[in-house]
Amino acid sequence: MDRRSFLTFAAGSAGLAATGGAAAAPAAGDGFVDTNVHLGSWAVRRGWADAPAELAARLRRHGVTAAWTGHFDAVLHSDLGGANARLAAACAGSGGLLVPFGTVNPTFPDWADDLRRCREVHGMPGIRLYPNYHGYGLDDPRFAALLARAAASRLLVQIAVLLEDERSQNPALVAAPVNLAPLPEVLAQTPGARVMLLNSGGRVLNAHTPLLQRLIQAGCGFEIATLEGAGGLGALLQRSPGAKVAFGSHAPWFYFEAALLKLQESELTAAQLAAVRHGHATALLSPA
């Protein structure tokens, strides 16, 4: 992004902030898609917005035009059908800003019906998985079965690699990051599957490992919430220009500004900026 582009975007945000309403939502090219948002409260700490309306209003003020949203209830609740219904209802009241991503746990009985409801009842464009809290690995045949069924239903699958730094987790609520090593092979065996990784920074994006290249080649998408390093986004795109890296904030658990400023910290071309802001997200959701 060059400075001019960023400031043009920033000026758009200011206008939104001044008016503060959905009616002032920017055109798609001016705003961006936040691919990593949650409703609800995580067990150990509050986020910066408790109510869906407040979250949506504040994301709008930042220039967000769509926020792909899961629900923290889906991480630990067993009644995922109920959690997904609440998520859908809450998002429906956001004027189209919050886009619901329900959750399916393939170790649960009759999980396929949860998946069907996400698509057919709630009209969700994708689902969000928490394998490290739900008790399965990506080499589990049940995950492969879920991925195949999601592909058949044309659902994007988001995998939360972690929700919080494993070093700071409450001892009663420990979950190691998801092991991604099996994923490229599973993807290769599942035609039509679309997968995006959330919060993969520390394990994958920052590490510059061969696994990252295998995931890129397998068509995985990524987002920037946990991408770190000074000028980290620019460095990532320089060494891995094929990486489909979208904007993600991990709001309201993280400060939104932490992700926003990453777009300014690196010198990106206009094309790179557009791809991060909305291009890759749009392509992941609606492949050609």
Binding site: W48, L227, E228, G229, A230, G231, G232, Y255, F256, E257, A258, A259, L260, L261, K262, Q264, E265
Partner: peptide, 20 residues
């Protein structure tokens, strides 16, 4: 403080600028 270059200036500044 940022702890750059391991951390991003952006992520660490964001927490101050976004704070209540």
């Amino acid at each position: 403080g940022s702890d750059a270059n391991g951390r991003s200036f952006a992520s660490q500044l964001g927490r101050v600028l976004g704070a209540d």
